[in-house]
Design a protein around this nucleic acid. Sequence first.
DNA 1: CATGAATGAGGGTTCATTCAT
DNA 2: TATGAATGAACCCTCATTCAT
Lengths: 215, 215, 215, 215
Amino acid sequence: MGETAGDVIPGRHDREAREHALIDAATAVFAERGFDAATTREIAERAGCSEGLIHRYFGGKRGLLRAVLRSRSATVVEEFAAAIPEYDDPFDEVHAILREYLLTLTTHQQSVRVHLGCALIDPEIGVEIGTLLEDRRAALVRERLARHVARGTLAPDTDVAGIASAISGIGFAAGFVGAVVFQRPREEIERTLETFARAIVRGLAPGGASNERRA
Amino acid sequence: MGETAGDVIPGRHDREAREHALIDAATAVFAERGFDAATTREIAERAGCSEGLIHRYFGGKRGLLRAVLRSRSATVVEEFAAAIPEYDDPFDEVHAILREYLLTLTTHQQSVRVHLGCALIDPEIGVEIGTLLEDRRAALVRERLARHVARGTLAPDTDVAGIASAISGIGFAAGFVGAVVFQRPREEIERTLETFARAIVRGLAPGGASNERRA
Amino acid sequence: MGETAGDVIPGRHDREAREHALIDAATAVFAERGFDAATTREIAERAGCSEGLIHRYFGGKRGLLRAVLRSRSATVVEEFAAAIPEYDDPFDEVHAILREYLLTLTTHQQSVRVHLGCALIDPEIGVEIGTLLEDRRAALVRERLARHVARGTLAPDTDVAGIASAISGIGFAAGFVGAVVFQRPREEIERTLETFARAIVRGLAPGGASNERRA
Amino acid sequence: MGETAGDVIPGRHDREAREHALIDAATAVFAERGFDAATTREIAERAGCSEGLIHRYFGGKRGLLRAVLRSRSATVVEEFAAAIPEYDDPFDEVHAILREYLLTLTTHQQSVRVHLGCALIDPEIGVEIGTLLEDRRAALVRERLARHVARGTLAPDTDVAGIASAISGIGFAAGFVGAVVFQRPREEIERTLETFARAIVRGLAPGGASNERRA
DNA sequence: CATGAATGAGGGTTCATTCAT
DNA sequence: TATGAATGAACCCTCATTCAT
């Protein structure tokens, strides 16, 4: 679990702990039921404190949602970058990137459900997540690919931006759609990712035919 | 528009037209607001008939949702298959498949929103869509790849199932996540798809190095 | 009682009866508890129907208040005028006017409480009542005095407007403040009114000293 | 302003200053919003101290209301008496009394609103104010009239008690209803009062016809 | 002692559902 | 049969009050 609620002593004054507990509880309940079906009553119960605090601290249910949406976005990209070692073999690196996508989306499954559930209804949130989170992850992939191009382990004419975008796209897709939504077995997804990684890296091998159209 | 509501003469008895109008209206409202935030009143209003009919025809709001979820799943895969011509060049075919994903998900955007919104909350619906819809589309892709392997336009040792799964995965991802959720510009998505198609087809070119691990 | 609620058959469709019952019940509850302390729950209970109707019919508690405020203002002035016969003796007429003030304010005590309670908080309502209701009653008094001046039963130099304003002022004061707020015994109030009527009419007797300043 | 809140140094222990600040703030807030709509939070904020003190000092919101109601009643009548000089001409004196009513009710408008707002809901408070305050003011008017009767500037058969009651009645009415509730222009009210004063004093002029019934 | 964090009862309101018409 | 009036459960939220600090 990446998302557990530390318990809270009733009556005791401890604002920060309660805020955390509420955000954690809300993340879980929003993920399980969806924002609208979630009740502040259940959130407060799970957080072990009173409903009123949701309104005092966050200005209401909607404000609590905002807090949930903001709560992890800061660290999640850094964690992502930190988790991927640099490899000599570009296949290993692309493979690692894709597996990390799967891992991070599986680990933060609840947050992801909340984010995407909101994005489905509120286009602005969708765009925000797309640009704030995914673009930053795509930029990371771009850097990694560029390094391989520079080192000669990928073809010099590689469309770095396009490939990076494709990799992060399928990474998110496999992780989110496959694991979170469709609940495909993890092995199946991992096999797909490996196949994809191998195919794409082979296509970008240095010294091969041109990567331009109509080779 | 792929989803318009034919109007209905109020007071007139015409069950089938009314059911359709309700399903269309519900699809739109569920997509815009999400299931829980949608009200039967708005759905009935948009359909041009009374709230009571939702309960008489579909047994309530939940039943109407089920009807919406079922309403297109029958035809949508056949339409998908019919829309993709067979090409001599495997790149053209993979490219066509991916563009059709983008097109169909964009066209049926509302249904897709409803489906995925539900899938996020109810795992069973997610699994159902995954197996009923996506597996059938993946099967189609498999057939097309197999044909190219048989014709010698793709390498004989191609991992057809894995590649098909990857292609349909990124097709859905690009279409749904990119176009529907993150609202990326269509050209950007098309470019990504083309890049991906070219890379993967090049990796599977016949006569090249083995497609097995550690080539 | 001028304000009773006809009962309502539960479940039966009878919008008008329910609207009436709600307005009557609300008048009573608002009068007893004040607007803010009144609960829609109690109002609905007394009206014998469900809370939801308050919001469907009147758009909420506030709308119900508006309905209460409007409910009698149309008829109340006409009733007032109709209740006062024309007398030959101006004392009898002024006396009758003052007693009618007392009577009408006592009879519609609940409405009056609601109106004044609102006026205390919302200045606009106060002004509205002052101009809509009281000005019209003062106009009536003016007409009656003018008739006596014309007939010669009051001095020709009588400041009709000023006296009329004073009479309706003390009429309302005695009726509202005395009977409704301070709950003075009715006889005491009636004695005061009679004293006042006699004094003022004597001061306006025809043929006496001038009614101008520094007589 | 007759009702301002002296500021309070936060954190400092100064019970009396804090009690005063709370009573002043509460008077203002109760007057503006009505007792029920007023919040202890706003009162505490305006008083510049914490909500808890309301309960510690006054035993809660209700207790604070009681304190507000009691806060001025002691001095207000004395101030009223002191403000009215003795005149030789009874008209001047009656006129002065009526103007002082208007002045005192306008000056202490906020207290008056609170008192009357409560009286509308709680009959006991109405009766209390009626007897405690108004009876004492009426007694003062009685004394003043008696003095004029004794001095021969008013007719010896004057119904002192009745006239005094009428004068204080219309004084309160004009002041409260006219100025506070209906917000009539001050000049209009003053004109009414002068007219009334002149009429009633003329009716009580010594040497005129009997002031007994059916003269 | 003063503060403000925490509580929880109860408020107005919404809305799916039922049912008289 | 289709309508919309009526229902009532449950929601989010407010706020007086209590109590740890």
